[in-house]
Every structure is written in C-alpha cells, then in structure tokens.
Simulated scan of single mutants.
Amino acid sequence: MPRTPRPVALLAVVLAAVILGWYSWIDREDASQAAPSDLPATSAPDVAGAPGTGALASEALAQLAVKGRAPRTGYSREQFGRPWRDLDRNGCDQRNDVLRRDLSAISLKPGTRDCVVQSGVLVSPYSGRSVAFTRGSVTSRQVPIDHVVALSDAWQKGAQQWTADRREQFANDFLELVATDETTNSAKSDGDAATWLPPLKSSRCAYVARQVAIKAEYRLWVTAAERDAMRRVLAACPDERLPSGADRLSAPA
C-alpha cells in the first residue's frame, strides 16, 4: 500500500490537534460559566444573624467584627468585575432585573424576551421622590442602581482579600442592589452609615438592616463610628429584622 506523503501526514496531525484543542477550550468555557469558582452560597451561610434567618438587625449588628478602615490603595470599579453580569443566569442582566423589581408601571422593550425596561416609575426608597424613568443614553442616568454597601467601602472592610469571582458576585447580588434617584445616589457616594443616611427618615431602619445583612452575609467588618451610627438608627426600631430570603437574591419572576 502506498505510504502517505510526510507533509500530508504532518498536516493531518496538526489539524487533529487544533480540533481537539478547540473542543477542549469550549468545554472549559462552558464549565467556567456553569460553575464559577469560589462564589458565596446563595442560601444563608452558617452565621448567626445572616440574611433570611429572621434575625433582629440589632442582634446581627452586634456580631459584626469592628475594625479600622483599611487603606483604599488598589481600589477600582474593575476590581469588582463586569457590571450587571447575569450571575443568576435568567437571561437578563442584573440592572434590568433590578429595574423590573423596583419600578412600577413598567413597559418592556420588544424583542428582548421581557428583559429590557423601556420605561417605568420609581419611588426612590431613599428620598421618597417619584421619578419617571425612560431608557436612553441620558435619561437612564436619572435612575441609577445603588450598591447599598458601597464597593469602595467593601474594599476597605474585607473585600480586597477576596477572589475576583467573589467580588463580582458581591457587586451583582440583588441584596446589594437598589434602584434610586440620581441626586440622592450622588449625595451618598461611597459613604457608610457613619457619613450618610437616607434623607427619608422612615427608610433608615430598613436601609441599615440591609447594610447589616450584606455585611453579615459577606463577613465584612464595620468601623466603630459606623457601628454606633447603625445602633442609633436601630434603637428607634428595635423589632427591625434582616431582609427575608425573597428580598435577598431573587430576581423578578
């Protein structure tokens, strides 16, 4: 039987290696999307006072570690991964999930599988201000999504020791995301409870309870001044409890 010419045989070997490498790469990509490494559990962790346990916010606050603020060195928004990544894999990014959860009278953009919010009305939980939302390059900024625990605050209170995956999970956690109005969000900036509280006083108990829930969930610490400010707020509402499981991580149906 005639022998295959060496150049042809060599080309066949190279093509086979490329094909096998391609399928191996696809398998790795699928696996990384299906099971990101070192992500925190979506159920309540084994920490007393964790979100979803029905614990009193004041009791959960008492269990948080109290330390000084670490340096802000090395912080950037990019340290917390891609904004609005669809970590719950429902086919819709986190920003639109939050808009659908927090706005009323919404209309959805056709052809987006009921994902993209075209318009709606927000009653800001921080100020009580009613904002008519219309999607657009300028108008969308009127309804920003607030990180309840500011990312730079988290960075200085434990997050800089996390993996990149854990920081990305944190930045896209529904417990951590709330739609609000542009003016109030700008005023808050990256402040903690010691430097900023919602101007709508009736919302402060729920706001602080959510911050406590987030810090308990992710084992972030508080400063002494932050703890004292939280205590003062919760003293006016001693029965305030941590957000329920439905408030923590669930996207709209």
Rank of each mutant, 00 (worst) to 15 (best):
P71Q: 07
A229E: 05
D102T: 08
S124M: 08
S107T: 15
Q156G: 08
R82G: 00
S24I: 01
G52W: 05
L39V: 15
Q211S: 05
L200H: 12
V149S: 00
C205P: 11
L108H: 12
Q33K: 12
P51L: 02
A229N: 05
A193S: 12
D38K: 09
V66R: 09
D228I: 03
G120T: 09
V233A: 08
G245P: 06
D97R: 08
D190P: 03
I26F: 13
P238W: 06
Y23F: 13
S32I: 08
R227K: 15
V212E: 07
T184S: 07
A235I: 06
V123N: 10
V18Q: 12
Q142P: 01
V138G: 08
T73F: 00
G128C: 07
V208D: 02
R135S: 11
P36Q: 13
G54P: 02
V233Q: 11
V14W: 05
S37N: 11
Q63W: 00
S58I: 12
K157H: 15
T223R: 04
M1V: 14
V123G: 02
A150V: 02
D192M: 06
A187M: 09
W84L: 01
R210G: 10
P40C: 01
R129G: 03
V233R: 02
L220W: 01
S202N: 10
N90F: 03
A251T: 14
G52S: 05
T180A: 14
F170S: 00
T195M: 06
D30L: 12
P243E: 07
G158I: 00
R113Q: 14
A187C: 06
K67G: 03
I106R: 10
R95A: 08
L177W: 11
D228V: 02
P36N: 13
L61G: 08
L234V: 04
V123F: 07
E217M: 14
L220S: 11
